[in-house]
Design a protein around this nucleic acid. Sequence first.
DNA 1: CGCTTCCTTGATTTATGTCAACGTGCGTGG
DNA 2: CCACGCACGTTGACATAAATCAAGGAAGCG
Lengths: 231, 231
Amino acid sequence: MQHEDIAILERLHRRTAEYPAGSILQHESGRVETTRFIISGWAMRYRTSRDGDRQIVNFLLPGDSIGLYGALFDRSACDVEMITPGMLAEFPCHELPDTFRASARLGAALCWIAGQDERFLEQQILRIGAMNAIERIAHLLVELQQRVLVAGSRPADAMTMPISQKLIAQALGISHVHANRCCRRLERQDLLETGADGLTLLDPRGLEQLCGFDRSLCGAMGIPLLRSRTL
Amino acid sequence: MQHEDIAILERLHRRTAEYPAGSILQHESGRVETTRFIISGWAMRYRTSRDGDRQIVNFLLPGDSIGLYGALFDRSACDVEMITPGMLAEFPCHELPDTFRASARLGAALCWIAGQDERFLEQQILRIGAMNAIERIAHLLVELQQRVLVAGSRPADAMTMPISQKLIAQALGISHVHANRCCRRLERQDLLETGADGLTLLDPRGLEQLCGFDRSLCGAMGIPLLRSRTL
DNA sequence: CGCTTCCTTGATTTATGTCAACGTGCGTGG
DNA sequence: CCACGCACGTTGACATAAATCAAGGAAGCG
């Protein structure tokens, strides 16, 4: 990485902030003024429908961005809320164009992150559009684990995720009752375990097999530049 | 628009090609070498699941891009196929970074297009995750109509879309039989009409109301630069 | 003419949603 | 300390949306 790239990167990371679980980082109707990167903690991006219930669009993990398009759109399309407490790097959206101008490599890295995000949405569509409840859950969990791994955690730490059955249900478009039944079934098959601290994958390969997870999309897909940097 | 911007834009549009309906523009496993913009015609982006059936991720209309991230990722995540015959502007992916370097405004326009695409995916997730079949269909049709309108068609032309019930089913994660029943119902309520040339919206406002379509996301959302140009 | 693709409809099965009840842990405030 | 509410997980009984199976019609096309 070039010397000046690092300088810019530092500048984007100069301000960090701690947020407690449940903080709203972005509101659906509001204008987006701030771009952030998650340094630690989990968040979720969701939309609220007419009748008041939530559809989680994507989970946001360390290394992911929030409000990357803020400079380009009038208003946010989604709410963003912290699931766990976490630390974020933040800077005003309007600094982004300068970053692009200053370093093509960093610009590419930002685009890469945006592209990643879009891929996650595609995966999500595949899940809720073409799978049954059990497969959806397995697929989601495997994807999240892969993402945690790519972000640089040790494999052992990547097995436990801070998400409740309720969140799973809201993400996968199933009722929380049904989500519970499916989770129990996965537990009985020793693929899964739930504890107070969240959900633990006991047999990732088994889950992959169950839902036909396509691993080829995960490994080595580009330039994990900021991702490794933010950790 | 600056003079040099126009020059770059011309260069990206210098080569165009006609494709018949059914052409495969991009293959799921393959490397993406070419970036394209749709000048006329409709296409679809889809993924194929283990058991062979398709999940349409997004429909692609005039003004939309194909393979915009080709320079950044090893392989495509989706297939792209023409629904109707159409004309595309195409150029090698590797020219994109130059474009970013040459004009910040054009770079922003490309990002805007990418961001749009991501929003469509969010909408799609909302549909299949949080709505029943009838609402999904209504919501999809209204969104497509809005997109056609934003792309610059005359309102009258935006009412008829070249998509079959089968495609609707594949996009919305429902069986084609059920899609048919729902469409018939919408027809009986005079919201819809199907003919040999596709599907015609008789009462867009009625459809909007039926599914609670959020219009605020559509109007005036940025810099439709290339969009107006490609038409 | 046979072939294919799409649309259409009825009968039946299945996955999932809804309603309801109960247990647990956890924080808060008395 | 207890009592209370609250969020979450759990399970059963029941209702329903949607899938599947099956059959047939209409239109395009070699």
